[in-house]
Structures are given as C-alpha cells and as structure tokens.
Design a protein around this nucleic acid. Structure first.
Lengths: 341, 341
DNA sequence: TTGAAAGCGCTAACAC
DNA sequence: GTGTTAGCGCTTTCAA
C-alpha cells in the first residue's frame, strides 16, 4: 500500500505539488483560498510529509547530533534536557547517540551522524580517536566538545577542569587535617581519570601517600557500587580517615554502608562526593560535594550552536570554562573532638 | 563546497555508481578486485553515504521510534538501555522522543516519527489522544505500548497492572497492622494515578480512610521532593504510621527526612517505595518496594518488534503481563514492640 | 501568487 | 558480477 504523497494531496486539492509544499512550509506565501483547500486535503488524506525526501531536496536536515557516553547517568540526563529545551524550541531534531564510553563506538557514532547530515555535533568529552577528530574537523560544521577543557579544541569547547576540581576536593579533606585520604571510583573514564590526577597532585603536594579504592572491573557509578566498595575496604580492615568519591552516588552508598557498620559520618570518617546531585543537600548527614554545571553546559552548547548556524561566519576554536564550586556540608564537617579542643 | 557523493567515488574507482552502492551494502556481491578499488576510493575521498537519499530510494529507514515521557528518570533510562541493546544490534537506529508527560506533545512526537518513516513505534503508556491512536493504527506498522496494561491495545502491549501493584503495596502495610497509611507522590501521571487507584481500593476494602500527600504542583519524583513532602507533613503534625511512596526516590527522601527529625524507620514509621531501584536493597534501613521489570519490558519490546519486522504476517493485538513483585525489607519490618509482645 | 522543469543522492529492477 | 535506466518524494530554481 503506497503511502500518501504530496502529489496525492495536490491532486485532491486541485493545485500543483509545489503549492502544497509551500502551504506546509511557508503558509503566508499562499493565498488563503488555496491554503484552505490544501489544508483540507492534507487532513482528509492523513498526509504526513516524508522527511527523508525533504532533507534530500533541500539539503537541510534540521537535525543536530549529540553524543554522550551513557544514557544511564543523571549528569547526562540533565545535560540532554537542557540541550533539548534549546534546540527543539528552535525547530531542530536532536539525535542522541550513546558511545558507551568507547572511543571506537564514538567514532561510529560520528560517522552515523555525518551520514545523517546533521548540521552540528555536540559531543561529551575531549578525547577522540584520530579519525574522529579528522572527521569532525573536515565536516565543516559546528562542533562543541563539553564537560572537559581540551588542550586543542576542534571547534568550540565548553567545560571545566576536572583535574582542578579533583584537586580542590582533595585539598578540602587535607585542610580538615586528614592524612589517610582515599580516592574511590568504579571506573576510570577520562573524566574520572582527570579527577584522579587532581587527587594525586594534591596528595603529592601535601606529601601524603595515595590510597585508591577502585573497582576491579570497571563498573558504572551507583549507590550500590559505593556501598560494595566501602564494604570491601572495611572488611580488609583498611578504612581511611576520609574518602573522595568520583560521584555523589558512590558517596551516598559509602555513607549508607558506614551506617550499617556503625561507622559515624563525619565523626569516624569524612566523605566528599562530586557533581552536587540533587539529593546531596538533603542526605543525612548532608553530603559535601563539588558542584558542576550540567544544565549550563547544555544550555550554552545549544545557544552557541544555534548562533553558529545562524551566522554565516565560520566559527573559530574557542574555549569556555564554566568552573565548579566546592560545597562543604556535614559529611566533611570538622570532627567533634577537633571542635571541642 | 559540495559534499562527496557516490558518483565521485565511482568516478575515482572507475566503476559505476551501483557498484559502489553494492560494496557498501553487500560487499560479497562484488568481486574482490573492484571491492578493493572502491574501498580505497571511499577512504581517499572520506566519503560518507547520505542516509536521507538511501532512505528515500530504498523506502527502508532502519529506524525505530521510541517515545518516553521523560529522559529524567532511571526507570526509562533502564528501559531505553534494553531497547537500544536489542535494536541497535539488529542494525536499527533508535530515535528517542520525549513527550514530557503531555499527550499533545506525544501526538506531535508520533507525527514526527511517522514523518521520519520509522518502521515501528514503541511508546510508553497506554493513554493517548484519539488522533494519536488513529495515526498509530492507520500507520500499519508494529506498535508496542509499554509499562501499563491497556483495555484495548493498539497492537502489542507489554506491561503490568499499576493498579494491582499499588494495591499490593498498600495491603502489605495494612497487613502489618497500620491504619493511618498515606499515599505520597509528586505528580499524578497515568501510572501514578493507577497506583493511587490501587491504594484507594485497598484502603476501602480495609475500611480505612485515605491519607494523601501529593505535591501542590506536579513535580517529578526525586529524593529532594520526598524529603520536602515529608517535612511538610511533619510540620503539619500529621505524620502517618506508614507511607506508600510512588517511587523509591521519594521513599529515600522521606527516610532521610525522618532521620533528620529523629523519627525512626521502621520503629516509628514504615515506608514502602516503588520500582525496587538499585539502591533500595543497600539503603539504611533497606527499603521495601515493588519490583518492576524495566529491562525485561525493553528487551521484550525490542524482540517483538524485530520479530514483527521480519515476518510478513501482520501482527494482531496481543497483551503480555510482565507482573511485579513485593519485596519486603527493613523499612516495613514489624516494629520492635510488636516483635517483643 | 502560482506552476513547470530539473534534480537532490541513492537503490530497485532489470539487462548484459 | 556489473551496468543501465528509472525513479523514491520532495524543494529549488526560474518563468509566467
């Protein structure tokens, strides 16, 4: 059963196909009489334009590609939310592709998006395969790399220094007087690795030894994983004075496991997370964290892409540092015996 | 600067365009000699096929549309994950559209997906506008409605009885001996409404009065909201004996707020959540919940869609009830003074 | 304001 | 195994 086409509508309305096309795209350019006839025919036939044909003929796709490493994480959900709000409102389709933390899959995602002739690509992260970089650079379309700062951005780069943030979190614990400070993570993707680098830098400056609690096999961050990793550490009899978790979920899990095991936070151990997720402030005890700007990242990326698409000027590489903020809360408050000294 | 086309590749390789097309789609049908030449030309030119042209010419899109009410919720993240795994592996593009809990936006999403000529639509929920239903029914493509059971499925329906699940959670609390049992939610989308219906049914059967803790303005479920709603209730001096939260996040927030306010769970109050999210088992105290099958829903939906697409037989409306399970844990354990009686 | 002709880049169908 | 021809359904000229 052949689908209804523009020609079918034109025949029914007694006009030429191009008139139907105009009614659909710029109704003001058609006289009211014809417009009404066309609208009626569209409705009667249940006509739905074939977007592939439209894209081919106009060589505009009104589609923007977005690559994220996972759909499984609030961080990217918030970022995607902001991107969507901005781009969909401007009449663009957002095509989201998941690279599953793999540079090879990311490369395939880029090829797929270029095949779709997206008009811009917004990609989380700044580490790509050489071919990925080449494809993005040659494509001559706006590219935004997000969440990290790149030493050599492909085009636009909106992010923050993960390393500096990791260093800041660690220094916060060092300033509290702790010496046995652990870094806890489920995997070491590029961003976690950078935070880890920041941790090691801070520890090195303070001449303290590294203490790592890293999952044997890479696992995605979750409350359960934080709980598991802390439990293992405790059973080894190896509990540190303080922990910097790469993620608030891990931190929440660690805190819950502490309670189960009768370890008091912050009296017996201090814990700081990362990202300042919604629940951090209302956790009991409230969770210290590094606030990151996921919404702003998405919002700004959308804005800049739209601006680039609307100006014919070729954009040059530019970098925007959105920063981060240390949010100290109860989970790293000075221990009571310090307070009472 | 015109993009590289298949003809360019054909010219460089000294073959006809159709040979290039074959090398890309069914390489085995081309002799090794030509294949190598074509591959080399593709590489040299950095050729990326135009998918819109391919879709138009072949009238196959290899795209499947998925509509979810929000990207903001683990429930749908898990479901999308399972859908992706199944469909991408089979060579399909998954186009995800967010209806933001609005039936009008859902209708627009359906139109957009039909315009893309997706080969199937998988849609969360069973409540749609009349036009949505009509469009889906007329489109003559596999349609799967998920997460709920429909009295009259459009095509395939994979879900569970939200009402029965709500009833079961409530009955669990009633059996524990509680009489002042509240239902807590941030909004009343169709699924939450059905759980609420189940709650009211159970309360009515037990001849108990309804107690509702519902956000003034609809808000999405979150730990913070659970915390807020409980705080308000407590400040009104209106704390019930037990709470059924529509969502584990709300339940976790309520539990945290209890701790802050010196209210013990389960000694002073019992709490049950919904969905059995990952953290429920490791929360302190561990959280009773209703386990739902998000992964299975997505996995099965993907399987059925692929099966329908591969068989020329027109599928008839079918309904699959994936069920749910009550998972009692510490947060609704019998209170100590009952145990010691 | 409306229409006719041509073509976007690819693939199905058929030949060779 | 390879090529030729003819479109897929729309939009961009350009002309009336």
């Amino acid at each position: 059963m052949p689908r209804i086409t523009l020609d079918d509508v034109a025949n029914l309305a007694g006009v030429s196909p191009i008139t139907v096309s105009r009614v659909l795209r710029k109704p003001d350019a058609v006289s009211p009489g014809l417009r009404l006839r066309v609208d009626a025919a569209v409705k009667e036939l249940g006509y739905v334009p074939n977007i592939a044909a439209s894209r081919l003929a106009s060589s505009r796709t009104h589609a923007i590609g977005v690559i994220v490493p996972t759909l499984y994480n609030v961080i990217f959900a918030e970022y995607l939310f902001a991107l969507h709000e901005g781009l969909v409102a401007a009449g663009f389709q957002v095509i989201v592709v998941n690279s599953r933390y793999s540079e090879i899959e990311e490369e395939n995602a880029i090829k797929a998006l270029l095949g779709q002739r997206v008009e811009a690509i917004i990609i989380a992260g700044t580490h790509h395969t050489p071919l990925s970089r080449q494809l993005l650079a040659q494509a001559r379309l706006p590219v935004v790399e997000t969440f990290e700062l790149s030493p050599n951005p492909i085009d636009l780069n909106i992010g923050m220094s993960q390393e500096h943030a990791g260093q800041t979190a660690t220094q916060h614990l060092i300033e509290r007087g702790f010496r046995r400070i652990a870094f806890l993570t489920g995997n070491l993707d590029h961003r976690a690795q950078s935070r880890f680098d920041g941790y090691r830098l801070a520890m090195q400056e303070a001449e303290l030894p590294n203490l790592e609690i890293i999952a044997e096999r890479p696992r995605h961050s979750s409350v359960v994983l934080g709980s598991d990793l802390f439990a293992m550490t405790h059973e080894r009899g190896d509990v540190p004075e303080a922990i910097f978790c790469t993620d608030d979920n891990l931190a929440l899990g660690a805190m819950q496991e502490c309670r189960k095991r009768g370890i008091r936070v912050p009296d017996d151990i201090s814990i700081i997370g990362f990202h300042d997720l919604e629940f951090a402030a209302c956790a009991a005890p409230s969770l210290s964290s590094i606030a990151t700007r996921r919404f702003e990242t998405g919002k700004l990326a959308a804005e800049r892409v739209l601006a680039a698409l609307n100006s014919s000027v070729v954009s040059r590489a530019e970098q925007i540092d959105l920063g981060f903020a240390l949010i100290p809360r109860e989970s790293t408050a000075i221990r009571s015996y310090f307070v009472h000294t």
